[in-house]
């Protein structure tokens, strides 16, 4: 992927998707992460992340392909950010929308050439209120940039 191709990614919107917080999945997830007790009906805050990534309108493989990479290239998580605006509810279905917000090429002494691509996902409740915003960055090694 050329630098021009990379820079053209900024502003690309993902297809809109959706995510339902199923009660049994919420039970299993909170058990798996050793959650403290939560108020009835209130989802664990990590559902801001699970809903965003699980409900975005493309798969991670499709996202990697969009930036000229694949899982086999060894992309790595960089940073993850969550903004919690409203408590999310078990049983509710949320719309997930967003896209790529930044893309930059860097060179490290040990890592060589790599790209950092960030994207933002907004988790929207049925009334149109943004309940949470998830921002994530992936690091893509570019051995043949």
């Amino acid at each position: 992927m050329t630098l021009d191709d990379l820079e053209r990614l900024v502003g690309v919107e993902f297809p809109v998707g959706e995510f339902t917080i199923e009660g049994y999945e919420h039970w299993l997830a909170t058990d798996a992460v050793d959650s403290p007790p939560l108020p009835a009906g209130v989802a664990h805050p990590m559902y801001a992340y699970y809903a965003a990534l699980g409900g975005m309108g493309l798969t991670l493989d499709e996202l990697f392909a969009m930036v000229g990479s694949s899982a086999a290239d060894g992309p790595m998580f960089g940073e993850a950010g969550l903004e919690f605006r409203e408590a999310m509810r078990v049983g509710e279905t949320y719309r997930v929308e967003g896209g790529i917000t930044s893309a930059a090429r860097k060179t490290g002494k040990r890592a060589g050439v790599f790209d950092i691509v960030s994207f933002e996902l907004r988790v929207v409740d049925p009334s149109g209120v943004v309940a949470a915003v998830s921002t994530n960055s992936f690091i893509f090694p570019r051995r043949t940039a």
């Binding site: 959650s35 108020p39 664990h44 805050p45 990590m46 992340y49 969550l82 408590a87």
Partner: peptide, 23 residues
Amino acid sequence: MAYVVNMLVAWAGHPACIRALKV
């Protein structure tokens, strides 16, 4: 990341008390 959220929920007393987290 969820373990950190658990710590914050247990401390603050309610999931809605957490406004933002970046790691």
